[in-house]
């Protein structure tokens, strides 16, 4: 019965949007799938959209932290986007700060984070110069810091 969460590829970025209440097996599958896809595609960024996720417990929290650090080893940056305020409050009280996980409020801001780290690695791209993306506003590194 365990479902698999689709991993979408958009250019150099892998996008995962968690839409249902996943059982632990599905969470483990997602971690394995994502790791394999980073290696298989050479993606340099991963976005995990949790805007539909109603709770993050220690199991899911650990998965997010593991993907974030694994992806770095594989030369990709992970950003978790859309964490609900109630989820953030609960995570902090649970004792999980997710310190090593980049977060952004929205998908759009998450993509900016990835674009910026690509710039840092490769120097400014033509598109970035033209799109006028700034490197400020609305992006935070720690859900506990809100």
């Amino acid at each position: 019965m365990t479902e698999r969460v689709p991993v979408l590829q958009i250019g150099q970025i892998l996008l995962v949007s968690i839409q249902t209440d996943l059982d632990d097996q599905a969470v483990v599958h997602l971690q394995d799938d994502l790791t394999a896809r980073i290696v298989g595609t050479g993606a340099d960024g991963v976005v995990i959209d949790i805007s539909a996720v109603e709770i993050v417990d220690s199991f899911v929290g650990r998965m997010l932290a593991t993907i974030a650090s694994l992806s770095l080893l594989l030369d990709a940056q992970t950003v978790v986007v859309g964490m609900r305020p109630a989820v953030a409050i609960t995570l902090v009280e649970l004792g999980l700060s997710l310190g090593g996980v980049r977060t952004a409020l929205t998908l759009e801001m998450g993509l900016k984070v990835l674009e910026r780290s690509r710039v840092l690695r490769q120097g400014p791209s033509q598109e970035l110069a033209e799109s006028g993306l700034s490197d400020e506003d609305g992006v935070r590194a720690d859900p506990a810091g809100q």
Partner: peptide
């Protein structure tokens, strides 16, 4: 409240596991 619901459900998830 939504926050209290979220806390209870998260605790339930931990204890059930």
């Amino acid at each position: 409240s939504l926050v209290e619901q979220t806390k209870l459900v998260t605790a339930a998830s931990e204890l059930a596991r």
